[in-house]
Amino acid sequence: MNSPSPAPTIEIVRVWKRYLPSTTPVDALRDISLTLEPGERVSVAGPSGCGKTTLMNMLGLLDTPTAGEVRWNGRPVGGRSERERARLRLTGIGFIFQRFYLLPTMTARENIELPMRAAGVDRAERARRADELLEEVGLAPRAGSFPHQLSGGEEQRVAIARALANRPGLLLADEPTGELDSAATETVLALIDSVGSASGATVVTVTHNPDVAARSHRHITMRDGRVVDDRREE
C-alpha cells in the first residue's frame, strides 16, 4: 500500500517570476514570500492576471522562479533535477485543475490509477485504492466511463480522486469549481473539505468565488503579482 506523504512545510522566499513575451516583459510574481504550514487550508484570491495560477505553478513545482526560491520542508527545490521534481509531484502533490484535465482516452478508473501506476503501486493495490476513491467521490458506478461520458461535476470528482490517489501531503486546486454549476460546485467543495480534513493534507485553493474562499482558514489576496493581504482566521 502507498503510504500517505506527510504534509510539508512550504516556503516561498522572495520569489519573482518574469515572463518574456515578444513585446514587454511581464512580472507575474513580484517579490512574494509565504510559508504554508502543514495541514493548512489556504485560499488564494485576486483579480484575473494577478499571478494566482503562477503562484500555484510555483507551489506545484511546475514552474521555476526567475529569482528567489521555493523550499520544501526547508530544502530548496530549485536545485533538484526534473526527475526529482516529477517524483515529488507524483507522490507529494495532488492537482485539481479548473478544466479537470482528465486524459480523454482513459476511463475514470484508469485516470485514477495512472499516478499509482507511475509510482509503482502494484495492480491489486491500485485496484483497491481506485475502488475506495471512486466510492469516496460517489462515482463507483461510473468507473468504466470515459471523460466525455461524464458531466462536468463528475469529471471534477474523478480529478479529485486522481489527485488523492498517491495520498499527497499537498493538494492544489486551481479554480476547481470555475466550470461547474452551483449544485456541482457544492458537491465538489464538500468533497475537497472532506478529503482535506480526512487526509490532513495542506489544501491550497485558487478562487474568484468568496463562498469557496470562505471554506479556508487562511486567506491570501493578490494583486499585480504581489500578496496584498494574508489573513488567518482565529
Binding site: G60, L62, E82, R83, A86, R87, L88, R89, L90, T91, I93, F95, Y101, L103, P104, T105, L114, P115, A118, R162
Partner: peptide, 16 residues
C-alpha cells in the same frame, strides 16, 4: 501537447 502536459504535471517520469 495537452495530454503530455497533463502526464508531466501529474509527475509521470519523463522517461516513462
Amino acid at each position: 501537447r495537452r495530454s503530455i502536459g497533463i502526464r508531466r504535471a501529474l509527475g509521470l517520469p519523463p522517461r516513462w
